[in-house]
Design a protein around this nucleic acid. Sequence first.
DNA 1: CGGCGCATTGAGGGCGGTCAATTGGTGTGG
DNA 2: CCACACCAATTGACCGCCCTCAATGCGCCG
Lengths: 242, 242
Amino acid sequence: MQPAATRLIRKLEQYDVLSDEEKHVLEGLPEPEKVVGENQDIVVEGSRPAHSVLLIEGFCARYSLLPNGKRQITAVHIAGDFVDLQSFLVKRMDHAVMTLTPCRIAEVRHEKLRGVVDEHRHLSRLLWLSTLTDAAIHREWLIVMGAQDATSHLAHFFCEMYVRLKAIGYAQGYRFQLPMTQLEFADVVGLSSVHVNRTLQELRGRELMTLQGKDIEILNWDELREVGMFDPVYLSNWQEPR
Amino acid sequence: MQPAATRLIRKLEQYDVLSDEEKHVLEGLPEPEKVVGENQDIVVEGSRPAHSVLLIEGFCARYSLLPNGKRQITAVHIAGDFVDLQSFLVKRMDHAVMTLTPCRIAEVRHEKLRGVVDEHRHLSRLLWLSTLTDAAIHREWLIVMGAQDATSHLAHFFCEMYVRLKAIGYAQGYRFQLPMTQLEFADVVGLSSVHVNRTLQELRGRELMTLQGKDIEILNWDELREVGMFDPVYLSNWQEPR
DNA sequence: CGGCGCATTGAGGGCGGTCAATTGGTGTGG
DNA sequence: CCACACCAATTGACCGCCCTCAATGCGCCG
């Protein structure tokens, strides 16, 4: 079994148990792995891809550029995420996806995906569910963006990334790596990088977390959660097995 | 044919042509219509509904309440929208849905939906697509929320609502009804109602639009679009027929 | 060693928030 | 028909969060 399929299987097993046959079907799905450097667009706005991208290793961001020159990051993707599964059903990309780090990716051709979705009801629902989880994260970001201040917003973001990274085994205790610059944080939370910097100092000063380069340690999970008003249900809200 | 099914069919026909058989299947889906007064919760946060709600007539809002006392509206739904289709696959509602006006709704039981989705690949994809359109709107709201100022944000919101209402025949020329209070606008755009009020005065003062009570008229579409950096592609970005 | 990108700091300003009062429209009961 | 209650819209005053501009430090790499 190639690693790309492993990733995909593990991803969908988050949602429900897979039969051996289903796993076998999934193994045939991804194309051979590719390696991409950092700060590269892997999906271009306005394009009309014939495949979706499965992220095997690394970090990516979905983003849009506005006429006023600002960039808004609308999602941060980690290993195992289907970065643009929606492009399977949607005509044209209304945003771009770039790598934040060097990445290993595998493409999944829509043509093949179509076959799997049409033939395997259960897998089809799981893939649908995976886009619904994306939407749930979008909604949560919207809530935080609209109703929380800078400190709270950043706290929430770090809580979310911690939970998601922990879930795929990318955290040791309360330590994890988040290879993003403060400018990228700023484009996630809709603040200036200057203010992000000051807010990070506040989070450090309150001894909620440390952040040096890419290395983060959460020092006080309970309080960080409270400051960020973070409730992780939106991240793992799928139906139980059947 | 009952009106509820008509609505659902028209909704999916936005995405692709439906066969007579498919239409027939959809006709059997909605339960008898219900009427709900304004400011009522029709989906409760934390609940685990056995049906999804199809909005036949009226306006609804998805919203979340935060520990800090604020309310964030994450979506505004209009006639024809499937208000919580995602609850079909997601365990528990992570937000609530309330009526903004008196509404006519029809429930669609998940049990029945499951049958349709399993038996009809094409309909299944169209329903999936409808949740992807919701997600696209979420992303767009995120972008606007994070990267545009108050004037621009409200202009964008009115552009979006105009295009969506126009598409279902709810606008005459550049006039339409949007039965929301300024406080509700505020909870959409993440501003205080005081500032919304002042921003509306600016939009009026620049002769971009009028707004008296529920009645809106767009006076200068091109400039309103430009101010709001509004590009409607995200609203109708689905694949062509097949 | 020099260059470059990122982090950090300072100063000043503006957008939008909060608090509070007033106006106005609408529905209801006397 | 008027009085009153209630809710939405509006206005004013003041404040604070976050922005912009700009300079400085700092680590990494060629």
